[in-house]
């Protein structure tokens, strides 16, 4: 058990390193020069450009830049913003709470509503409830979050005036954004749970449960759900990633001061060190969450507890 956790931790570290290498390489090799595109509109002389590049260490060969970048990263230094010259990491940390609040509430909404609706739908498979829930799920995964967010604002803020349309302080500003992301997540989870429950009730052991006299309710909610939860939990790990990416869009729509907004601004301003920092940071967070998911398998699925074999990263 402990060995398993240590092993997973090591694997996660590897993956985080890998992903930061990946992001570094993408930003290094892909065409587009941070300095040039920032100064393109200005009238900087070639000498001035070279000077700036040198100041940022961008004229060093690849391996050297790479070494410097990694050396710093392990010391918790993600470099400085090209725009404001602030160090990146503190900037990220400052905005993390707002995003975390958003991601957690919307994940909670998705998980709760998604599992509930998914099982409910599977229980009434073929009926009207099922059809309705399936349509809801389809809408959830088909609506762009920036659109449903705007629609929510139009309805609840502009028309009804119930909730503030923007901002990032207080619980009331959290409602609409997390609902927006929650709709997406609910769609994903309920579709997953529904099909996974339907798969489970085709397993032979379900007949055994009926034959020993359990009610259909007990069969569904006690046994089918427990078995169906395993793939749903995997989904939950991936959902956190979805939510963090979705935060970029949703925070823009609702003008929330979170890391998604930082990223969006950095992209607009071609502030590559910040882009890099945020992406690597989110990847790390994502890996961490998935590590937790893997560990939680052991609580749900005894087969994994026994063998200590996870389901991949």
């Amino acid at each position: 058990m402990l060995k398993f956790i240590v092993f997973r931790l090591a694997a996660s570290l590897f993956v985080i390193c890998g992903s930061s290498v990946l992001v570094f390489c993408i930003l290094y090799w892909l065409p587009g020069d941070a300095v040039l595109s920032r100064l393109a509109l200005g009238t900087a002389s070639p000498e001035r450009i070279a000077e700036i590049r040198h100041g940022l260490g961008l004229d060093a060969p690849f391996y050297q830049q790479f070494g410097v970048y990694f050396g710093r990263m392990f010391r918790g230094d993600f470099g400085e913003s090209l725009v404001s010259a602030e160090p990146v990491l503190p900037k990220i940390m400052e905005h993390v709470p707002a995003t975390l609040a958003l991601a957690l509430t919307s994940t909670a909404i998705s998980a709760g509503l998604g599992v509930l609706l998914g099982v409910w739908s599977a229980f009434h498979r073929g009926g009207a409830v099922d059809a309705a829930v399936r349509i809801v799920g389809l809408f959830g995964v088909s609506m762009p979050a920036f659109w449903s967010g705007i629609m929510l604002i139009l309805l609840f803020s502009v028309r009804l005036g119930w909730l503030p349309p923007m901002g990032s302080d207080g619980v009331r500003t959290l409602i609409l954004p997390s609902l927006t992301l929650g709709i997406v997540g609910t769609g994903l989870i309920l579709r997953m749970v529904r099909s996974s429950v339907l798969d489970t009730i085709r397993e032979p052991f379900i007949v055994t449960l009926r034959a020993k006299g359990l009610s259909e309710r007990a069969v569904m909610y006690r046994h089918a759900l427990r078995n169906a939860l395993i793939p749903a939990v995997t989904m939950l790990g991936m959902l956190v990633g979805e939510m963090m990416a979705g935060a970029v869009v949703v925070e823009t729509v609702f003008a929330r001061q979170g890391i998604g907004r930082v990223l969006a601004d950095a992209i607009a301003g071609k502030d590559l060190p910040v882009v890099q920092g945020v992406v690597v940071f989110s990847a790390g967070l994502y890996v961490l969450v998935n590590l937790l998911v893997d560990l939680s398998y052991m609580l749900i699925d005894p087969r994994i507890r026994r063998t200590g074999i996870g389901r991949g990263t």
Binding site: G18, S37, L263, I267, V279, Y286, T313
Partner: peptide
């Protein structure tokens, strides 16, 4: 598969954002 694992750690849209940001 290890490479894919790494690619997978960066959530889809974030990865797309990083790529798109680099490409302009």
């Amino acid at each position: 598969m290890r490479a894919v694992d790494v690619l997978m750690t960066v959530p889809g849209l974030l990865l797309a954002l990083a790529v798109a940001a680099a490409l302009g």
